[in-house]
Amino acid sequence: MTPVVECLVAFLFGSVAGLLMQRSRFCNTAALRDAIMFKTYRNTKAMLVAMMILTIGFTGFMSVGAGHPLQFDVGLNTFAGLFLFGIGMVLAGACTVSTWVKAGEGNIGALWALIFTFVGMFLFSLVWSASWWPPAPQTMTGQINAPALQLGFANAQTLQGKLGVPAIVFGLAQTAFLALLYRGILRREAAQHAEHEKHQKEHQKKKAAKAASVAA
């Protein structure tokens, strides 16, 4: 594919994704924040469903060597970077995806978050140019690199290569785990619902008793 076609396909995918997220009010930040802060799981469930479909899809195609998996070394910076990101997205009230979606709805705050995401990236470019860490893609080895705090590269495909077991088998195991999480959420929701009903019934009973005593 030529770069122009790639850009067109990407724009088309982005447009459909943006439209679907706008119509469903899906937000990755809410998927984590609401589960942690408010014990509500509307977005968390949607995220888990997508992850299950993708795990089967990606590992299925990876089993036959198809697809374009991400390839770069990971390490301490992967954890630390997403840790900072996690704090940032809760404070900003949106992640990079929802900032674009909310900006499209006319949200100036989201646009402001986006501008400062760019500023944050530029600041990092200055820090990197002084530290040269984490290693640049050209110097990544795919192996453990202890001095650079890197664990190398591994995914379902490298597991398949090492163990001789098709990638989809690992994918199915991960999907089963995600399905268990999903079931746990459904159970918790059912318990929350039952509790809510119980409170409402008690409230109604009290109200009825009060009305009866007034009438008497």
Partner: peptide, 15 residues
């Protein structure tokens, strides 16, 4: 602050 942390974090992690 949130935007700055997100931008910095993304580049530190490469994702």
């Amino acid at each position: 602050i949130g935007g700055l942390l997100m931008g910095f974090g993304i580049r530190l992690a490469y994702i």
